[in-house]
């Protein structure tokens, strides 16, 4: 092992003074130190993007972003699963593109309609253990989430006095059809409080007829206020800012405790909002792409329908 005693070595950083090292068997000069201890064992997303775009790389160019589509303002609420995972470390443009491609292909085969939390839907799933190999469930959508191919929604219904909830993955190939029987929104993002409400609020007949919604109209908002059962509850509803629930009629101590635990500053937290959402430009460019693909898919489907109609004749 070479000794570095009393040698004046050039430092990795630009300095006004030169550094000296003591004679130490285990010392490593800092010019090697930085290289031998990399800060992370993975690349940053922007580094990978640079390499993909560089002229030295044979990476195919991504198709140019679309700007010609006339996308309605609330389009991103109809297709929220196309928006990427806001967690920056996990993002990758190629993976997102390929995932979206799979989603477009699935949507070309099966019609996944527009729905919101509070809409009543009927889902038919292929079930190998049922006699007609199908299983149909009707329920109100109490939650919707997931990003990309992991998108899911939960339907709730009360059947024979028993409350039942089923979680469906939107891009699962066993899903045969999704039909929206009643398209409407509720005042809350999630309706988990229906578990603590009387069963009438969650009961929907299986043979319910679909209620058609005229094209181009705004989605109706159901501002009904649900009256909850008396306590005990599954969650502390008084601590959540629920709009669709009637006055809980609790003792003051509950509201005091809720106020103590509340985080009223969160609605002003810009960084939190920034971290949980994708930025506007990216969101718009993705929605442009989604809108274009939807338009093309609709044209294809209508062509197929007219062909079938002609054949029948």
């Amino acid at each position: 092992m070479a000794s570095y005693s009393r040698r004046i070595l050039p430092c990795f950083w630009k300095t006004t003074k030169l550094l000296t090292f003591e004679d130490s068997a285990r010392r490593v000069p800092c010019r090697y130190h930085q290289e031998l201890l990399p800060t992370r064992n993975y690349l940053l997303p922007e580094t990978v993007e640079e390499h993909r775009k560089s002229e030295l790389s044979k990476h195919p160019e991504l198709p140019p972003s679309i700007t010609s589509e006339n996308v309605p303002a609330d389009f991103r609420f109809v297709y929220p699963e196309f928006l990427p995972d806001p967690q920056y470390d996990r993002r990758d443009s190629i993976r997102e593109r390929l995932e979206r491609e799979d989603m477009y292909r699935r949507r070309a085969v099966i019609d996944i309609p527009e729905f919101y939390v509070g809409s009543i839907m009927a889902v038919t799933v292929s079930d190998q253990y049922s006699p007609n190999k199908e299983n149909r469930f009707v329920g109100i959508c109490i939650d919707r989430g997931g990003v990309g191919l992991r998108a899911f929604f939960i339907l709730r219904n009360v059947v024979d006095g028993q409350g039942i909830e089923i979680m469906y993955e939107m891009y699962n190939p066993t899903l045969q059809s999704i039909q929206v029987l009643k398209l409407e929104k509720r005042v809350d993002d999630k309706l988990y409080y229906l578990r603590d409400a009387p069963q009438e609020y969650s009961t929907f007949p299986f043979d319910m007829d679909p209620i058609p919604v005229p094209k181009g109209s705004t989605v109706p908002v159901n501002k009904m206020k649900v009256q909850l059962n008396p306590r005990p509850w599954l969650e502390r509803w008084e601590r959540q800012d629920l709009q669709g629930v009637e006055d809980l009629k609790l003792e003051q101590r509950f509201y005091d405790k809720a106020a103590k635990v509340a985080k009223p500053w969160e609605k002003y937290d810009l960084m939190k909002w920034y971290r949980e959402n994708t930025n506007e430009e990216e969101r718009d460019s993705i929605m442009q792409e989604v809108h274009q693909r939807k338009r093309l898919t609709d044209i294809e489907k209508s062509k197929r329908k007219t062909k079938l109609a002609e054949r029948k004749r």
Binding site: D102, V109, S126, Q128, Y171, T174, Q176
Partner: peptide, 10 residues
Amino acid sequence: FQFTEESVKF
């Protein structure tokens, strides 16, 4: 399963 195919049916 390829997403261009029809839904899985038993």
